[in-house]
Amino acid sequence: MAAPPTDATGPPRLVSIRRQLATRPARPISDDGLDWAFGNLKTGRLRPTGKGVSLPMNTRRDVDAETVDAAGEPTPERRRIPSWSFAVTAVVLGFIWPGGRRVLADMTIELVMIGLLYVAVTRTPAFKDWLAVMPRSARRCGKVVIGAMVFVQLFSISTAAFPLTQWAMYSQKPADLVVSYDLVGYTASGDEVDFVPSLTNRTMSTELATFTVRTLAEQLVLARLDPSEPEHLDETEEELEQVIELLAELHSKRSPDSVVVEVVILRSTFDSEQRRTGDGVTETFWRQQVGLS
């Protein structure tokens, strides 16, 4: 194999350590070297791998550094962005963006708590001992996974990072007036059917579809209150109609003995007193003939 490219006059170039090792002539291992290797295998300082032995992280770094020096190549200079610059950027952005201060404050609180938890776990002797014997690649893998989860959480990324997501539950106070929706299906003979939570339809897809119906219904309520954008009202109605039609089709396919021809959405509202008694105010919010097309 050809020697790695070097340029005596130019700046130091990154040269793969693996390539350097590949170009160096093999040297016989001395008895001292063998003794050293067996001694370290016994103590666990060296670990067997599929291709030979691996060194614990710190040791390996030292050996790599020595190898580079021994090869006579200039040690590559690593340009690092100072870590404080990220904090400064975050603070500047937080103050420039509207509402950024609040976001910055919340994010800082969350980040500080994450940091405290991280320190609490990783600084314990038991954890350190456990980590010390783990393969380097596995440690990196663990850091990447946990780091990605925290990143997505901090920046409130929901569907965009699937399969990772933001975790937030019971972290917002719901509105004082509780609203619930009932999807009721009717067959041609007028029988009421358990439209949504029938056993055959209890799948995640159906669950999400019914969630979508509720969301659209809520959007429709808001759109009806705001007559300034009639096209938004039309769009929402059309979308709701479409989802209900598809849900009804799905139900009828899975439960052919109770084909639904009409779907009614009942909307109930409960204030704090009505919640206690269960006597909310119920209205027929939506009525739609289905299966006509």
Binding site: M107, I114, Q153, Q166, A168, S171
Partner: peptide, 14 residues
């Protein structure tokens, strides 16, 4: 993470 969000981003009303 759920608890962190509850503590870090919510006001006392929760």
């Amino acid at each position: 993470l759920i608890a962190l969000r509850r503590l870090g981003w919510s006001d006392w009303s929760i």
